[in-house]
């Protein structure tokens, strides 16, 4: 159980850092969804099924959809995001 948690946490933190570093914003949104997904698995391990379901549905699903739609609306989807890399 402990090793599983270690794996998930490392993956999650890696995905989180990726969100900041990826140039392409769509990939960043995807990474955010991955973080959310891993988080919902962690919640399941923490004996919190309700929260896991919410995180999966709302965190991964809805927020991913909202962000992706936002990107499409902002016209930043797909093309190489211009000078956003500070």
């Amino acid at each position: 159980m402990a090793w599983l948690v270690l794996l998930l946490v490392v993956l999650m933190l890696g995905a989180a850092v990726l969100v900041l570093l990826l140039d392409n914003l769509v990939a960043a949104v995807a990474a955010a969804s991955v973080v959310s997904l891993l988080l919902s698995v962690l919640f399941a391990l923490l004996a919190a099924p309700d929260v896991a379901l919410t995180e999966a549905a709302v965190g991964a699903g809805l927020s991913g959809a909202v962000l992706a739609l936002g990107l499409r609306r902002l016209g930043l989807a797909g093309i190489k995001a211009e000078d956003d890399h500070a």
Partner: peptide
């Protein structure tokens, strides 16, 4: 299903609502 079984199994209004929204979307 998720909404109506909120008081029995994990899940409930919020989670079921999101799924419904996904259906319409």
């Amino acid at each position: 299903y998720i909404v109506l079984h909120g008081h029995l199994t994990p899940g409930g209004g919020f989670q079921g609502g999101v799924v419904l929204a996904a259906a319409f979307f």
